[in-house]
């Protein structure tokens, strides 16, 4: 399926765009690989230290823990590691 992916704050500078559309499967374990392959951003080496991947506003880790799948219309966002505003 095709899903829109957004990049917030400093991640958008690193990636060089604020949003795009990528093709993903329903398996959340494949999402990071899909992002890397389709936009050329080494997200797997940055998750946990420099950025997070959100699916519908929650860390993708939560989705994996719950055994949930990615659905049509889900919102994907890559956000930098931040502590507060």
């Amino acid at each position: 399926m095709n899903l829109k992916i957004n990049f917030s704050a400093g991640i958008s500078d690193e990636v060089g765009m604020r949003e795009t559309v990528i093709t993903v499967s329903s398996n959340p374990n494949d999402l990071l690989k899909c992002i890397e392959e389709q936009i050329g951003f080494p997200v797997r080496s940055k998750v946990g230290t420099r950025c997070m991947v959100l699916v519908n506003g929650r860390s993708i880790k939560k989705l994996i823990q719950e055994g949930a799948t990615i659905q049509e219309g889900d919102s994907i966002m890559v956000v930098p590691y931040l502590s507060g505003g």
Binding site: N6, G10, G85
Partner: peptide, 19 residues
Amino acid sequence: GSRPIYGTSCIYSFIQEAG
């Protein structure tokens, strides 16, 4: 990282996305 560039609003999209 983002804070010196975007100021305290660096979290805006993140907070919005998280509901």
